[in-house]
Amino acid sequence: MKRVGVLALQGAVREHICSIEACGAKAILVKWPKDLEELDALVLPGGESTTMRRLIDRYGLMEPLREFAKSGRPMFGTCAGLILLAREVAGQAAPHLGVMDVVVKRNSFGRQVDSFEAELSVKGLEKPFNAVFIRAPHIVGVGPETEVLCEHEGKIVMAKSGQFLGCSFHPELTDDHRITNYFLGMIPSGTGTLLPNGPLYSKV
């Protein structure tokens, strides 16, 4: 079984866990650096990016998260999670993790009264995806290796760059698990299959 961590400092953690488990993988809460061990992939959920960043710094998670990225394992950021992954945040001197080759702008659709839901056409998904945008960021620039998966009203709202997947909206707030499934598909096949018998995982 694939083991997928969810950064559980704050935000829509429960929804991602439900979505991951609905897709047949094992979801693991990540609050401390040691929780990153033995994961096949990691989700950075929606929430408040400034809060998450403060807690990342306070509990020494920054380097372990960057190491996790270096190891090549898939990472998926939704909304605040996308902001944490981006190599540049417009108007900010320094990025957070800075590992995904995209530039994002925070709150770029406006305040909460401007938040919305919309039917999106996402590359790789056959039918439209009903997406919830909440004080959402959008991707203002992408690197050469980044694949744009979805645009809404001329703004990039979902992209994939190597092992990184990011979206402006919240797939976890709906019962449609196709995007979580898409992300789980980025985990190399065969990963995690030793889990039931492997002594390495005895502490599970």
């Binding site: 559980a8 400092l9 704050q10 935000g11 829509a12 953690v13 429960r14 929804e15 929606g46 929430g47 408040e48 809060t51 909304c79 605040a80 909460q112 009264v113 401007d114 938040s115 919305f116 839901e117 919309a118 039917e119 919830v132 945008f133 909440i134 004080r135 009203e153 919240h170 707030l173 709906t174």
Partner: peptide, 21 residues
């Protein structure tokens, strides 16, 4: 087509505050 002020959008905003102060 975008829809504003739906239950999902309004309740979702509170979901993003979870675990917070």
């Amino acid at each position: 087509m975008s829809e504003h002020g739906t239950d999902r959008v309004k309740r979702g905003m509170a979901e993003m505050q979870k675990g917070g102060v």
